[in-house]
């Protein structure tokens, strides 16, 4: 199972990358894409929308089911990935390259409280 060391994770299977400019990039893990199966549709949050940590803010639909994606931190959406929307299967083939959205968190220091790669590996029994 591919769980890059330089990312943070949530128990709900989002990955989070801290960017140099104080924003975060969010996607779903390799484990998540594999569990979902063939992804056919993404609904991503609009730029400018704000969410609290844990809010459902995006939807990933596979041939099997729709799954909510949760905001890992409180903050404002500053970008979403149009390329992934037009090619949802890219999330299956490259879960860590095909990001979903970027946020400007209200408190960037909270990233460090998210799961490390090792802690996430434990939660999925990897």
């Amino acid at each position: 199972m591919n769980i890059p060391q330089d990312l943070r994770y949530t128990e709900s299977h989002e990955w989070i990358r801290k960017e140099a400019d104080g924003s975060i990039t969010v996607g779903i893990t390799d484990h998540a894409q594999e569990a979902l199966g063939d992804i056919v549709f993404l609904e991503l949050p609009s730029v400018g929308k704000t969410f609290n940590a844990g809010d459902a803010c995006a939807v990933v639909e596979s041939v099997k089911a729709a799954s909510d994606i949760y905001a890992p931190l409180s903050g404002e959406v500053i970008a979403n990935n149009d390329a992934a929307v037009s090619a949802p299967e890219s999330v299956n083939s490259d879960a860590y390259g095909s990001w979903l959205f970027k946020m400007k968190p209200a408190d960037i220091s909270k990233v460090d409280a998210l799961l490390t790669a090792d802690a996430y590996a434990k939660t999925i029994g990897a």
Partner: peptide, 12 residues
């Protein structure tokens, strides 16, 4: 079995 390793779309 809901699917095999090739996945629902490929199987379909």
């Amino acid at each position: 079995p809901v699917q095999y390793p090739k996945g629902v779309k490929t199987e379909h």
